[in-house]
Amino acid sequence: MGKVTLQDVAAHAGVSMKTVSNVVRGYQHVSPPMRDRVQAAIDELGYRPNVSGRSLATGRSNMLAFAFPDLRRPYFAELAHVFSRVCAQRGYQLLLEETLGEADGERSAVRGREAGVVDGVVIHPQVLTPEAIDRIRGDTAVVFLGEDVRPQHADQVVIDNAGAAAQAVAHLVALGRRRIGFFGHETGPESRTSGLRLDGYRAGLAAAGLPVDDALLVPREVGDAAGAETAFGRALDAGLRVDALLCRDDLAALGVLRAMRLRGLDAPRDIAVVGWDAMGLGSSLVPSLTSVAPDTVALADTALDLLLERIDGSTVPGRLVTVGHRLLVGESAPFADGSMQGRVSA
């Protein structure tokens, strides 16, 4: 038998070429029985996609780009890994592009700097405004992550930052904590992400009947763990007294735990600590870190679903999709009985 084509697989399975294409491409919205039927035909015939031929025929490269601010941040390193894995499962290659959170880098990514090389871009911007994004993106299929943009004509995937923060506060309240602080937001204008997490923190306190005390809100000037250690250590030395702390991110929590240890304080005995992002390092700490864990797999899957629909020509209005999260309970803020027997889902 000669080279097996997409048409051969469709005829053998008794389905349309579109269905075969969706299965080969890893499109999510194909029923399991139909996927099994097509996959059986692929296996029986020995079909192998012709990537170069498909690129010439369709004008597509079968490559996507993921643009993000800083690979040194554990959250983005984890997200890049997840996106690479999810793209590979769908038969796509992924180009990783570090923008350093700079306007030029973000503009280049949104414009599709690799025009002709990638079919679409998923980007986590930090500085571009929605208006700037709408002006420059042209025909590039783009999906946005994070809370700092709300483009009218493109899709965006986020987590419920406010809801997750309120849930973390409720967990701390259930431990009997009453002086619950928030640590790690910016000293200058707050990012949208920090603002939402602070909103959720305040809502969590209000739901528990606790007052919001601005003296318990401690910003940091530098976003790494060393900067967090310096800022929180300074606050402790100045007389800050809290019995629990919600940190903006895990790097902030790492700095907090070190600043506490250097002053003879223990988590959770003296201060229960909750981080954010659930980076893998947190489970190796002593104490292991309780942390809000965004569902990064759902985030990547959803972003790619939306992006591929745009690449296929969808012109629906811009969509805002929220994916889930979990509170991963570790030793720094265990359950009220001292256990860490599970994950609290959103």
Results as ranks from 00 to 15, higher is better:
Gly2Met: 09
Lys3Ser: 06
Val4His: 00
Gln7Ala: 13
Val9Gly: 04
Val15Tyr: 08
Lys18Ser: 04
Lys18Leu: 07
Val23Thr: 13
Tyr27Arg: 15
Val30Ser: 14
Val30His: 13
Pro32Tyr: 13
Met34Pro: 11
Arg35His: 15
Asp36Gly: 09
Gln39Glu: 13
Gln39Tyr: 02
Leu45Thr: 08
Leu45Cys: 10
Arg48Thr: 03
Ser52Asp: 14
Ser52Thr: 13
Ser52Gln: 14
Ser55Lys: 10
Arg60Val: 06
Met63Asn: 15
Leu64Tyr: 11
Ala65Val: 12
Ala67Glu: 12
Ala67Phe: 10
Phe68Ala: 12
Phe68Thr: 15
Arg72Glu: 15
Arg73Cys: 08
Pro74Lys: 03
Arg85Ala: 14
Gln89Phe: 00
Tyr92Glu: 05
Leu95Lys: 02
Glu97Asn: 15
Glu97Gly: 02
Glu98Tyr: 06
Glu102His: 13
Glu102Leu: 05
Ala103His: 11
Ala103Arg: 01
Gly112Trp: 01
Gly120Ser: 12
Val121Gln: 05
Pro125His: 02
Thr129Phe: 01
Pro130Gly: 09
Glu131Cys: 00
Glu131Asp: 07
Ile136Met: 08
Arg137Thr: 14
Arg137Phe: 10
Ala141Cys: 11
Val142Asp: 09
Val142Met: 13
Val143Gln: 15
Gln152Phe: 01
Gln152Pro: 13
Gln152Thr: 15
Ala154His: 12
Asp155Ile: 15
Gln156Asn: 13
Gln156Ala: 12
Gly163Arg: 11
Ala165Ile: 03
Ala168Arg: 00
Ala170Ser: 12
Ala170Ile: 06
Ala170Thr: 10
Leu172Arg: 07
Leu172His: 09
Val173Glu: 09
Arg178Gly: 06
Arg178Pro: 08
Gly181Ile: 04
Phe183Ile: 00
Phe183Trp: 05
His185Gly: 11
Thr187Ala: 10
Pro189Ala: 14
Glu190Phe: 04
Ser191Gln: 11
Asp199Met: 00
Asp199Tyr: 00
Asp199Leu: 02
Gly200Tyr: 03
Ala203Ile: 00
Gly204Asp: 00
Asp213Val: 00
Leu217Lys: 00
Pro219Met: 05
Arg220Trp: 02
Arg220Ile: 02
Arg220Gly: 03
Glu221Thr: 02
Phe232Cys: 05
Gly233Glu: 02
Asp237Ala: 13
Asp237Phe: 04
Gly239Arg: 03
Asp243Glu: 09
Asp243Cys: 09
Leu245Lys: 01
Cys247Arg: 05
Arg248Trp: 07
Arg248Gln: 14
Gly255His: 01
Leu262His: 10
Arg263Lys: 05
Arg263Pro: 02
Arg263Phe: 03
Arg263Trp: 02
Asp266Glu: 15
Pro268Arg: 09
Pro268Ser: 09
Ile271Tyr: 02
Val273Arg: 03
Ala278Glu: 08
Met279Arg: 12
Leu281Ser: 10
Pro287Phe: 01
Pro287Gly: 06
Ser288Val: 07
Ser288Phe: 12
Thr290Met: 08
Thr290Trp: 02
Asp295Phe: 02
Val297Met: 03
Ala300Thr: 07
Leu304Ala: 14
Leu304Pro: 09
Asp305Lys: 10
Asp312Tyr: 01
Gly318His: 06
Arg319Tyr: 08
Thr322Ser: 04
Gly324Trp: 01
His325Met: 05
Leu328Ala: 07
Val329Gly: 11
Ala336His: 02
Ala336Gln: 11
Asp337His: 05
Gln341Cys: 12
Ser345Phe: 12
Ser345Ile: 10
Ala346Met: 04
